[in-house]
């Protein structure tokens, strides 16, 4: 152990990581909002009695759940523009890859939540004259979403970690900035340790919060 830790260069260049962190938070917000809301729609379609809705939703879920996110990002960055002629920058490629993947995963979470509601709830909705959509919106979803809240939070945590993959196509986020710092100052050990600590410090309270949430919901159920 001859290495002497020296975080001075990291602290001097804190704004480099700060820019990265802002990039991370930005892409996280965009992907998590797109992913969790798109997932809800796909999850509902997946559960729908009409095959015209459920089959495409199922195909979507299977494709995006069963391919690695990095492959999706790279595909959107290099292959998609050739196919469509649409210009794709690193941000768009990462957003497409991460949010489509998140939609697929969260769709399954929503579906499991809807399925966990006892059939009596649907019948009660029907009995007071509600349509399928009304029952779903007013009776089923509020309870279902509450039940899957811990699973959704976990997904959110995964999305936050996934945002580092955007660095592979050179989107400016925390890890990408750390690469820059490491190259500039020849101190990869401090740079990458700093990134690991940043993620840990941000996510650890969230993870603990999820445990608390799980316990609270279990009690209330």
């Amino acid at each position: 152990m001859s290495h002497t830790w020296d975080f001075a260069t990291i602290i001097q260049n804190w704004y480099v990581l700060w820019i990265g962190l802002k990039g991370t938070v930005f892409i996280f917000l965009v992907t998590v909002i797109l992913g969790l809301s798109g997932g809800l729609i796909i999850g509902i379609c997946r559960y729908a009695p009409s095959r015209a809705l459920s089959w495409p939703a199922m195909a979507f879920v299977e494709v995006f759940r069963n391919t690695p996110v990095l492959v999706q990002i790279i595909w959107f960055y290099y292959a998609f523009p050739i196919l469509t002629g649409i210009d794709v920058d690193p941000f768009l490629a990462a957003v497409l890859g991460i949010s489509l993947n998140t939609m697929a995963f969260s769709a399954e979470i929503y579906r499991a939540g809807i399925q966990s509601i006892e059939p009596g709830q649907w019948e009660a909705g029907k009995a007071i004259g509600m349509t399928y959509n009304q029952s779903l919106r007013r009776v089923i979803l509020p309870v279902a979403i509450k039940r899957v809240l811990p699973a959704l939070t976990n997904r959110g945590i995964e999305v936050f970690k996934m945002s580092t993959l955007a660095s592979v196509v050179a989107y400016v986020e925390t890890l990408n900035q750390a690469n820059l710092l490491a190259d500039l100052n020849f101190n990869p050990i401090e740079a990458y340790t700093a990134v690991a600590v940043i993620f840990f410090v941000v996510l650890y309270p969230v993870v603990q919060g999820t445990y608390v949430l799980e316990r609270v919901l279990k009690k209330g159920d």
């Binding site: 945590i157 970690k161 996934m162 945002s163 580092t164 993959l165 660095s167 592979v168 890890l175 750390a178 690469n179 990869p188 990458y192 990134v195 690991a196 993620f199 840990f200 996510l203 650890y204 993870v207």
Partner: peptide, 9 residues
Amino acid sequence: TTPPLVQLF
């Protein structure tokens, strides 16, 4: 809680 890519680097 830390991203696998960061761990790998």
